[in-house]
Design a protein around this nucleic acid. Structure first.
Length: 771
DNA sequence: TGACCGCGTCTTTTT
DNA sequence: GACGCGGTCA
C-alpha cells in the first residue's frame, strides 16, 4: 500500500510506523520526531482499514491528546479522528469506570477527589484516630497511600505486606495501614475516587469481571502508549491486560527523559518492556532534528554518567552551533540581571523573538528574581505553574456546590461549603455530623437527611440551619437530570450566595473573585455549547467528570503573544525553544538536596538536567550563583556537580579567577546588591498579583453579576418570573415552576424540594425573589 | 464564628 | 520570605 504521507518520515521513523503486527517499543530520543511517529502511525492504522473506535491511544496530558487528535484529524479528517479512543490514562479509564461503576460498588456519577480533597480526608482521619498530626503528616500519609495504590496494594494486602509494614514501623508511622483502610472506606461511602483510584479500580474491575475485560480487549484492536517511561505499575498492568490477546501494541518513550518517579512512575516499565512482551521489535529514533550538534553532544556526554539506560546514540545533522555558555554570577539578583541582559541582547542584536526564549529552573520559588529583573527591563514574560484556575478558592467553592448537588454523599465537598457563605454551621456542628455519620456507618448527608433518626445532638436552631441548607441543595439536586449545566450553575451561584458574597465590599480581591466565577460559568457555557452541537449530554455531571481531570496546562493562554517563557524543568518536557537559560545550577538546588543520598534519585535529577538542555534548539546558557537568598536567608553554594558531567569541550566556562574580585560595572557588589534589594523591597509584594484571565477567550462575557447585594430581595406584589428562585418563610428556598391565575388571584406553583411542590397565593405568601 | 498571631516548614507535580 | 496551620481571644 502506498501512502504518500509516509514520505515525510526518515527510515527509522517509517519502520516504526509500518510495523503493526506485534508488540513494539519505540525509543525516541529528545527531538527525534516522536509525536510525528505516533500521529502517522495512527493515521497509517486508519488507512489500512482499522476503525477509529478500535484504536486506543494513551497520553500523559490532555493537551498532548488534544494536539495529537488535531494532527491526525488534519491527515485523515476530523470526522474520523473524533472516534479515536485518545486521552490520558485517567480520562479514558474514568470513562470506562463510569460505564460499569455498579460492578464495583460505585454509581455512574462518582466524584473524583483531587489532591486537596484527599489530603483533607486524611487529615480528618488522623484526627479521628487521635494520632499525632506532626508524625502523620498528610503529605507523607498521602504519598504512602498513593504508592500502595499505584502498585495495586489494597489495604488488606498492605497489612500483609512485610516490606510496607516494616518501612512504616521504622519511620515511626505504624498506623498508616489503618489510615489507608479507613480512607478507602470513606471514599467509597462518599462515592468518590481519587486520582490513583481511577487506575486501581480499573484493575479491580478487569480482574473481577472478566466479561468487562473481554469487552474492551475486543474493542481495542491496537493500543498505543506515549511517554511510556513515566507509567506506573497500575498503568502497566491495565495495558498489559488489554493487549493480552492480540499483543498489537506500540509504546513510545525515552528512558533518558524519565523524570516523574516521585509520582510513582517506574522506569523499569520501559527498560524491561521486552521481557513483558516476548516478541517485541525495538525501534530507535536516534536523529535529533531539534538541536545543534554541540547541544546534542553535550547532553549525550551528561547522560552517559547514568548507569541504567537503554544504549543509543543520539546525533544531530544540524550545524555545530555555539558552545553552551556557563554564567558564573555573584548572587541570585545578579543572575536575574545578567539573564535579562542576555535576553535583551538576543532580541535586539540576534533577531530572536521573546517567545523563542525560555528560563528554566528547578523550583518555582526561583521565578521571583527573574520576574523582577525582566519587569525592570520591560521584557514581557509569562510564568507557567503556580496556582491553576481550578485551584482558586472561589472556583473550588463553586465546583464543590456542583459536586454536592450531583453527589450529596461527597463529604469533602460538603465540608467545604456547608458554611460558605457563612450560614451559622460551624466546625463543632460539622464535627458532630461527621462523628454521627461514622457511628452509624452512613454518609454525613444521610445523617442530615434524617437527623432525628440518627439522633444528631444539635440544638433546634442548628438543626433548622442544617435543614435549610439541605433543602437548598435538594432543590438543585432534583434539577441535575433536567437542567443543562450552565443554567443550573448560574442558579447555584445566585441562590447559595456565592456571588452576593463578592459584593460585600469593592476590594480588588472580591472583584477578581467575581470575574473568576464568571469565567467558570463561561467555561461551562462553552462546554454545553460544543457538546450540544455534537449531540452529547450537557448535564452537570458530564461537565464535572471532565473538569476534575483538567489542569492549568490545559487552559493554555495567550500563546500567540510574544513573551519569554518561565517554568520549571518538569513543565518544559516536550517543549522546545531557540534559546534556553537553565538557571540556579548549584549544589543544594539542582540536584535537589533531597536526592543526593540516593543514586537512583540522583540519576533522575541528571535526566532532569538532560531534559532541560535538550529543550534548546540553538543556544543554551547555564548559570550558577555563589550565593542565593533562600528560605529567608542567604545560602552559599558551589556549582552543580552536573556541570562537570558535561564534556568541557562543549562548554564556554568562565575562567576561575573571574570569581575573586567582586568588582563589576556597578562598582562594589555587596553595596549595590543591598541597594537593589532595597529597591525591590519597596515594592509591595503583599498585594495580590493581577489575576490571569482564564482562557480560552472565545465567547463574549455571558453573565455579569451587577449591583449591590442590599437590594437582592424583592417582595413580590403580583408577578414573579417563572424559573425564578424564591425564599419562603417556612418552606425555605424553592424554584418557581409556573405562575397562573386562579379565581382572579395570581398563584404560583413552587418546587421546595423535599417539602414538596406548593401552590401559593402570591398576595399572601411573602416570597422573596432571589436575583 | 472569625480575625489575628506565632510557629514550623519549605522539591519537582502530566492526573 | 511566604504560606499554611493551629491556637487564642473578642
Amino acid at each position: 500500500m502506498e501512502i504518500s504521507f509516509l514520505n515525510d518520515l526518515n527510515d527509522s521513523q517509517r519502520l516504526a510506523v509500518e510495523y503493526t503486527d506485534g508488540p513494539s517499543l519505540v525509543i525516541a530520543g529528545a527531538g527525534s520526531g516522536k509525536t510525528r511517529v505516533l500521529t502517522y502511525k495512527i493515521a497509517y492504522l486508519l488507512k489500512t482499514g482499522l476503525a477509529p473506535s478500535s484504536i486506543l491511544a494513551l497520553t500523559f496530558t490532555n493537551k498532548a491528546a488534544r494536539e495529537m487528535k488535531g494532527r491526525i484529524g488534519a491527515i485523515v479528517g476530523e470526522r474520523i479522528a473524533r472516534y479515536l479512543w485518545m486521552g490520558t490514562f485517567h480520562s479514558i479509564f474514568s470513562r470506562i469506570l463510569r460505564n460499569d461503576a455498579d460492578r464495583i460498588g460505585y454509581t455512574k456519577n462518582f466524584t473524583i477527589y483531587d489532591t486537596s480533597d484527599s489530603n483533607s480526608l486524611i487529615k480528618s482521619i488522623v484526627k479521628e484516630l487521635k494520632l499525632d498530626e506532626k508524625q502523620y503528616k498528610h503529605g507523607l500519609v498521602h504519598s504512602r497511600i498513593s504508592f500502595a495504590k499505584n502498585n495495586l496494594i489494597t489495604p488488606e494486602a498492605y497489612l500483609a505486606n512485610h516490606d510496607m509494614m516494616t518501612a512504616d514501623v521504622n519511620s515511626r508511622v505504624p498506623m498508616i495501614s489503618e489510615i489507608y483502610k479507613i480512607y478507602c472506606i470513606r471514599c467509597k461511602k462518599a462515592d468518590a475516587m481519587d486520582f490513583d483510584d481511577l487506575l486501581l479500580h480499573t484493575n479491580i474491575l478487569f480482574r473481577n469481571h472478566v466479561d468487562v475485560l473481554q469487552k474492551y480487549q475486543q474493542a481495542f484492536s491496537y493500543i498505543l502508549v506515549d511517554e511510556y517511561q513515566d507509567t506506573n505499575f497500575a498503568q502497566y498492568l491495565i495495558v498489559k491486560k488489554l493487549a493480552e490477546q492480540h499483543e498489537r501494541i506500540c509504546v513510545v518513550g525515552d528512558d533518558a527523559q524519565s523524570i516523574y518517579s516521585f509520582r510513582g512512575a517506574n522506569i523499569d516499565n520501559i527498560l524491561k518492556f521486552k521481557n513483558a512482551y516476548q516478541h517485541t521489535k525495538i525501534f530507535k529514533l536516534e536523529q535529533n532534528y531539534r538541536s545543534t550538534k554541540t547541544i546534542v553532544n553535550a547532553a549525550n556526554s551528561l547522560i552517559d554518567k547514568n548507569k541504567a539506560q537503554i544504549p543509543k546514540t543520539i546525533f544531530s545533522e544540524k550545524d555545530t552551533g555555539e558552545l553552551i555558555k556557563v554564567l558564573s554570577v555573584f548572587n541570585d539578583l545578579e543572575e536575574g540581571v545578567i539573564v535579562a541582559n542576555h535576553i535583551s541582547d538576543l532580541r535586539n542584536k540576534e533577531n530572536f523573538s521573546y517567545q523563542q526564549i525560555a528560563i528554566l529552573y528547578r523550583t518555582n520559588a526561583q521565578s521571583r528574581v527573574h520576574e523582577e529583573a525582566l519587569r525592570k527591563k520591560g521584557i514581557p514574560y509569562r510564568i507557567y505553574g503556580g496556582l491553576s484556575f481550578y485551584q482558586r478558592k472561589e472556583i473550588k467553592d463553586v465546583i464543590a456546590y456542583c459536586r454536592l448537588i450531583c453527589n450529596p454523599n461527597d463529604e469533602e465537598a460538603l465540608k467545604r461549603i456547608i458554611n460558605y457563605p457563612t450560614r451559622g454551621i460551624g466546625d463543632t456542628t460539622v464535627n458532630k455530623l461527621i462523628e454521627c455519620a461514622q457511628l452509624h456507618a452512613v454518609s454525613a448527608w444521610e445523617v442530615m437527611s434524617d437527623m432525628l433518626r440518627y439522633n444528631l445532638a444539635v440544638n433546634a436552631g442548628t438543626a433548622n440551619k442544617l435543614a435549610q441548607f439541605r433543602n437548598m441543595v435538594n432543590v438543585f439536586s432534583e434539577q441535575v437530570t433536567t437542567q443543562n449545566a450552565y443554567d443550573l450553575v448560574t442558579g447555584v451561584v445566585k441562590v447559595t450566595g456565592v456571588i452576593s458574597d463578592t459584593f460585600v465590599d469593592k476590594s480588588p480581591e472580591n472583584i477578581s473573585k467575581r470575574e473568576n466565577v464568571e469565567e467558570l460559568l463561561k467555561a461551562i457555557f462553552e462546554f454545553s455549547d460544543t457538546r450540544q452541537k455534537s449531540k452529547e449530554p450537557t448535564l452537570l455531571p458530564d461537565f464535572l467528570s471532565e473538569v476534575s481531570l483538567l489542569t492549568d496546562q490545559d487552559t493554555d493562554k495567550e500563546s500567540d503573544t510574544d513573551k519569554v517563557t518561565m517554568m520549571t524543568v518538569h513543565a518544559a518536557k516536550g517543549l522546545e525553544f531557540r534559546a534556553v537559560f537553565i538557571v540556579g545550577m548549584e549544589e543544594d538546588l539542582f540536584p535537589s538536596p533531597y536526592t543526593v543520598s540516593n543514586e537512583r534519585e540522583l540519576e533522575e535529577e541528571r535526566r532532569l538536567f538532560y531534559v532541560a538542555i535538550t529543550r534548546a534548539e540553538e543556544l543554551c546558557f547555564i548559570s550558577y550563583a555563589k550565593s542565593r537568598f533562600r528560605n529567608g536567608k542567604i545560602n552559599f553554594s558551589n556549582p552543580s556537580r552536573f556541570i562537570k558531567d558535561i564534556n568541557s569541550e562543549y562548554l564556554d566556562s568562565p575562567k576561575e579567577k573571574e570569581f575573586e574580585p567582586r568588582q563589576s560595572r556597578f562598582g562594589n557588589w555587596d553595596e549595590d546588591m543591598d541597594m537593589e534589594r532595597n529597591i525591590f523591597g519597596q515594592q509591595d509584594y503583599s498585594k495580590p498579583k493581577p489575576v490571569e484571565p482564564f482562557a480560552p477567550r472565545i465567547l463574549k462575557r455571558l453573565v455579569k453579576f451587577e449591583g449591590s447585594n442590599d437590594e437582592k430581595t424583592v417582595t413580590t406584589n403580583g408577578s414573579i418570573p417563572a424559573d425564578a428562585f424564591v425564599k419562603h418563610a417556612t418552606f425555605g428556598i424553592g424554584k418557581v415552576v409556573k405562575t397562573y391565575i386562579d379565581n382572579g388571584n395570581e398563584k404560583a406553583e413552587i418546587d421546595f424540594g423535599e417539602k414538596g411542590i406548593k401552590s401559593l397565593l402570591l398576595k399572601f405568601a411573602k416570597l422573596e425573589v432571589i436575583e
